[in-house]
Design a binder for these strands. Structure first.
Lengths: 339, 339
DNA sequence: TATTGGCACTCAGAAGCCCAGAGTGCTAAC
DNA sequence: GTTAGCACTCTGGGCTTCTGAGTGCCAATA
């Protein structure tokens, strides 16, 4: 619909506004980006853009500011995604080469993402989905404490310490461990509950308390896995860009604290691996996030996406950089996790 | 030196200023707290307090604001610490009753602390110190992946996944596990390095790669323990109280991001269990924290303090509430951890 | 038809001014 | 030591003014 030059004007407006935080007018636009035309022509274009609802003037005789739809068009036509800098790339690589367990990978990634982008980064723990039990481990931690570990075949480890209340004999423990693995190894997670239902009955009475405790923990772990978990990083960055949210920052903070809201939001966003999906400003319907953009990408193994990673920040953000950062982190996560 | 009433005036000023964020004058002071004297008397007291450097007037004909020393005196003479509310207390108790492992206890505690106080809460991971090895566990996670766990007798568990690069035979693994425990169980952490030095030599050549990898991880874990770790929560609260830091919030953010700075700071603060130590504003010499107060308490078992927990926020904070919250959390941590 | 120079118009935000009122310090009396 | 009274001092809010960036429109031009 709109001409090529008009779009370039839009792009210039977005870029200038993102970097200067000031509404941008036709003249300053002309100075920074040498369009081959006069300011009057630019003004015509801007009037057109405004008619299309892509930009908006805070008041007569002020420069223009992109609207949500303006950002949207800008992003949709963003062909050249900014590349990560060399420094950033090497940082990613050192991060990548250190093999570590899931917790560590996730927390490092999310931290790096928030540092790369200066936004609030978030990563969702993988849901186990069709994962199967690889093994169950019982590790004595103290005389009366026991760590129950559930290792699933996608590499995720869940663990929990139980206070048993009495001394635990090591031989009965290893016996128990054997039986449990016999029972559960290879079973899908959804079967755990039914499989363990009558398990404790087979044991001597004095062991039953212990067994029920362990079985309880295992079931909890399977359950805990259903309600996903979100890790955030860089929330302090909100203090930096506070002005962009127009004062009512508390409602935003609440939404973030209520991880549930965020979880529902990102779970509703469709994602494929290697692509970043994005909600700009009021495109999301969450109260308190109306001036906030949220972007996520999926990560996982070749066959399927197992969780999401992304960030949120003010609509006035550097989409190009941020998208590429999210994409890079997602790619890294897929590589590290999707074994 | 200063009279009882003068001190009460100081206290009233602190309280009013903390709650209203406005410099407080003699008249409004009189309205809210019914001293039995006239405003002129109060003014005299205030003049005295100002002479002592305890309060300070932003400009002539404005109310007074406490100085760092003013807060200091206020806190030092704080005899009645505000009690936690019933709701808060029950929240603490539900937190307490769920037995969990170290990671969970710490992250929950710090989160609760930040919620109770609306400040940035922090907790330091226990340094193992004189801890001893309880056991070493080797858990196969995937065909070529192995989780190495180091369980110490104070309940701390460290774990790390290693990618071995080849299939791991389960029987050699359990053999290895036996030997490792034989060697290390009961040893203090500082001995681990020397004890494991020639360990791999005793094994068949094809196992050596594996053994060295494992030993490497163990040593890393012991080392990692030396450089302490800090967990933060509620950094987003900074956005709420931004105004109190007088604009230059970025330097504060940097200091927080550089956990090293915080770690050094709190490690320099002397703490005993059951008491909270506090640096108000410029009492700390960290650049960027000049308008920030930091308080910490120690937690641990009966015999010794093993780590610290605390919070930071603007000097204009509710010291009474915050101190009691930190104290309560520290007590809870001691109870849960100091087994 | 698209572009441009020209021009009148608009309005936010800075600058300047004024004033009320909150707050002070001081002094003299109690 | 306390108080009433008073003169004095500012900030902050309200008001006005005015400048300049920026607009929209129109007629001329290519």
């Amino acid at each position: 619909m709109i001409s090529e030059r008009s779009f370039n004007v839009l792009r210039a407006i977005v870029e200038d506004y993102v970097s200067t935080k000031e509404p941008v007018g036709s003249k300053s636009l002309l100075e920074r980006h040498g369009f081959g035309v006069s300011s009057a022509t630019i003004r015509n274009d801007m009037a057109l853009l405004e008619e299309e609802g892509l930009i908006h003037a805070p008041h007569t005789s002020a420069g223009r500011v992109p609207t949500d739809s303006g950002y949207r068009l800008f992003v949709d036509r963003l062909n050249e995604i900014k590349q990560l800098s060399v420094a950033e790339r090497t940082a990613m690589e050192t991060l990548l080469e250190s093999s570590a367990d899931l917790d560590e990978i996730l927390s490092r990634s999310v931290r790096m993402l928030s540092q790369l982008t200066n936004q609030v980064a978030m990563v969702q723990y993988p849901t186990l989905g069709k994962a199967r039990v690889r093994s169950v481990e019982l590790v004595p931690i103290a005389d009366t404490r026991l760590m129950v570990m559930l290792v699933s075949d996608n590499g995720r480890i869940q663990q929990h310490v139980v206070e048993v209340g009495f001394m635990i004999a090591t031989d009965s423990l290893s016996m128990l461990r054997g039986k449990l693995n016999e029972l559960l190894a290879g079973a899908s997670l959804s079967e755990v509950s039914s499989l363990t239902k009558d398990f404790s009955g087979a044991f001597a009475p004095e062991l039953r308390v212990l067994v029920t405790a362990i079985v309880g923990v295992l079931n909890e772990q399977v359950d805990a896995n259903r309600q996903d978990k979100l890790v955030l990083s860089g929330t302090a960055n909100l203090a930096r860009s506070e002005g962009d949210f127009g004062g009512n920052i508390t409602s935003l903070l609440d939404a973030i604290e209520q991880q549930v809201v965020l979880l529902r939001l990102i779970s509703e966003m469709e994602t494929e691996q290697d692509s970043v999906s994005l909600l700009i400003g009021s495109e999301n319907s969450v109260e308190g996030l109306s001036r906030t953009s949220v972007m996520v990408s999926g990560y996982g193994n070749d066959s399927e996406t197992i969780a999401k990673v992304g960030l949120l920040g003010p609509t006035r953000m550097d989409y190009s950089t941020n998208i590429s950062a999210v994409r890079a982190i997602a790619k890294y996560l897929s590589k590290s996790i999707g074994t």
